[in-house]
Simulated assay, not measured.
Amino acid sequence: MFNMRQFFRMAKWARNPPGEKQVKLFLIVVALCLVLFGIERLVGWPDWLTMDNTPGGKITR
């Protein structure tokens, strides 16, 4: 749902766009996320990072 707060934020952003450094930082972060996603899709998710599906979410040892 679109609300007025989002509209005012977009208007403020259109009047005062972010600087060049902030745009570069954003693009670097997006590129890093895409690289990590690509590596995960090609290699797979390691088993040691997968949580055990235990009843009640309790970890038993």
Results as ranks from 00 to 15, higher is better:
Gln22Phe: 06
Pro46Tyr: 02
Pro46Gln: 02
Ala31Glu: 14
Asn3Val: 12
Ile39Leu: 13
Met51Tyr: 00
Trp48Arg: 10
Asn53Asp: 05
Lys24Leu: 10
Val23Trp: 05
Val29Leu: 10
Val29Met: 10
Arg9Tyr: 00
Pro55His: 00
Pro18Gly: 07
Arg41Thr: 09
Pro18Arg: 05
Trp13Tyr: 02
Arg9Gln: 07
Thr54Ala: 13
Pro55Asn: 01
Arg15Glu: 10
Asn16Arg: 03
Val30Lys: 08
Trp13Leu: 10
Gly57Val: 02
Phe8Ser: 03
Asn16Val: 09
Met1Ile: 08
Leu49Tyr: 05
Val35Arg: 07
Pro46Ser: 03
Pro17Ser: 03
Ile39Glu: 08
Phe37Thr: 11
Gly38Thr: 04
Gly57Phe: 01
Gly38Ile: 03
Lys12Glu: 09
Thr50Asn: 09
Met1Tyr: 14
Arg61Gly: 08
Met51Cys: 00
Leu49Ser: 09
Phe7Gln: 03
Lys24Gly: 07
Ala31Ser: 13
Met1Phe: 14
Thr60Asp: 00
Val43Cys: 05
Trp48Asp: 04
Arg5Met: 10
Phe7Ala: 06
Ile28Pro: 03
Met4Ala: 08
Phe7Pro: 00
Pro18Val: 15
Glu40Phe: 14
Phe8Arg: 04
Pro17His: 01
Thr54Arg: 07
Phe26Thr: 15
Leu27Tyr: 07
Leu34Cys: 12
Met4Gly: 06
Phe26Cys: 12
Cys33His: 06
Arg15Thr: 10
Asn16Lys: 02
Cys33Trp: 12
Phe8Cys: 03
Phe26Leu: 15
Trp48Gln: 06
Ala14Ser: 03
Pro55Thr: 00
Ile28Leu: 14
Met10Gly: 01
Ile59Leu: 04
Val43Phe: 12
Leu36Ile: 11
Asn53Phe: 02
Glu20Val: 15
Trp48Leu: 06
Arg15Met: 12
Leu49Asn: 06
Ile39Thr: 10
Leu49Phe: 08
Trp13Asn: 06
Leu34Val: 12
Val30Thr: 14
Val29Tyr: 07
Ile59Lys: 02
Ile39Pro: 08
Thr60Glu: 01
Glu40Ser: 14
Thr60Tyr: 05
Phe7Lys: 04
Gln22Val: 15
Val43Pro: 04
Asn3Phe: 15
Cys33Gly: 12
Ile59Cys: 02
Gly19Ile: 15
Leu49Gln: 09
Val23Gly: 05
Leu27His: 08
Ala14Trp: 02
Ala11Ile: 07
Leu49Ala: 12
Leu25Lys: 15
Phe7Asn: 01
Glu40Met: 13
Thr60Gly: 02
Glu40Ile: 14
Lys12Gln: 05
Glu20His: 11
Asp52Arg: 00
Val29Cys: 09
Met1Thr: 07
Phe26Gln: 14
Leu36Ser: 11
Gln6Leu: 11
Leu27Met: 12
Thr50Gly: 11
Asn53Arg: 01
Lys58Trp: 06
Gly19Arg: 06
Phe26Arg: 13
Gly44Asp: 02
Ile39Asp: 06
Ile59Asp: 00
Leu36Tyr: 11
Leu36Phe: 13
Val29Pro: 06
Asp47Thr: 03
Ile39Tyr: 09
Ala11Leu: 11
Val35Glu: 13
Ile28Arg: 14
Arg5Lys: 06
Arg15Ile: 13
